[in-house]
Amino acid sequence: MTKSNKSELSPEQRKELLETLKKRFEKNMNRHEGLEWDKVQAKLEANTEKRWSLYEMERTGGEPDVVGEDEKTGEYIFYDCSAESPKGRRSVCYDREALESRKKHKPENNAMDMAAEMGIEILTQEQYWELQKLGNFDTKTSSWVKTPDHIRKLGGALFCDRRYDTVFVYHNGAESYYAARGFRGSLRV
């Protein structure tokens, strides 16, 4: 499925997604203290497009979970909470410009286009650091993060990981890709 060809999830897919999200929500209450699943589910029930995006996050290995609520908008904030960078989103360069710049050995896709097709945003550095306060993520993998324009214009892109009990931000050429690097996303519902 691509963003332009989205459809409502089948009743079975919808039921399975909501059950999976509820179990994860209940298992990881430290990620969203004070929030109630019934209210989250009501928002999900009312938004076909956001359900589809969460389904795509789940399908690609992201294990999305609620990490907060925007008190101004009332939106629930989901992040990919898989222990390692989502398996179905690895081996991608940063963006389309980087993909097109490669002459040989091009990856199949790029992080920015994949995120857009899924209807999600790539985590920023700040969001990545917030995620790391909820657990130890990317101890064996790394994840592209939204790169500031001035760095991207010079050909670079940023990625993060956790090593030695410390969260690191690194740089690479935006056209690079590795089997252990993917991206994590966020979604507001």
Rank of each mutant, 00 (worst) to 15 (best):
V40L: 11
W144L: 02
N136F: 00
K39I: 13
P64L: 11
E56F: 00
F137Q: 02
L154N: 13
E130Q: 14
V167T: 14
V145W: 00
S7Q: 13
W37P: 12
E63N: 12
S143V: 00
F159S: 10
G173R: 06
V66N: 06
L9F: 13
S10H: 07
G61M: 05
E12D: 12
E19Q: 14
S85T: 15
M114Y: 01
Y170S: 11
E126K: 12
S85G: 01
R96I: 10
S143H: 01
G88H: 03
T60F: 13
V66Q: 07
M112E: 14
T48S: 14
R90Q: 14
S91M: 12
G155K: 11
V40P: 07
K39H: 11
K87Y: 03
K153T: 10
K106E: 10
A83T: 13
T60I: 03
N136L: 09
D65C: 07
H171W: 04
L21P: 02
A179C: 05
E175N: 03
E130L: 07
E175K: 00
A83Q: 11
V189H: 03
D165V: 05
N110F: 09
S10Y: 08
G135V: 04
L158H: 08
A180M: 09
N172H: 05
L21A: 08
D149C: 01
M1E: 03
K27G: 04
A46G: 15
C81D: 04
R90H: 06
P86V: 01
M114D: 04
S82H: 00
R102V: 07
K140G: 13
A46F: 06
F137P: 01
D80V: 08
W129I: 07
G156Y: 15
S7L: 12
P107S: 10
L44H: 07
G61W: 05
G155Y: 11
P86I: 04
R90C: 08
E63R: 08
T48K: 15
T20C: 10
P148F: 04
E121L: 08
H150E: 13
R89N: 04
W129H: 11
L35K: 09
L17A: 09
V169W: 02
A174R: 00
E16K: 11
N109R: 08
I151G: 00
L17C: 09
H171I: 09
W129F: 14
K104G: 05
N30E: 14
A116G: 12
K22I: 04
T2I: 03
L17D: 05
Y94T: 01
S53Y: 00
T60D: 07
K146C: 01
V167I: 12
N109C: 08
I77C: 09
F78R: 09
D65K: 02
S101A: 15
R188S: 14
R181I: 09
M57G: 10
V189N: 05
S186T: 12
Y55K: 02
V145D: 02
E36D: 08
E69C: 11
L158I: 11
S186A: 13
A98N: 04
T48P: 00
Y178P: 00
E75T: 06
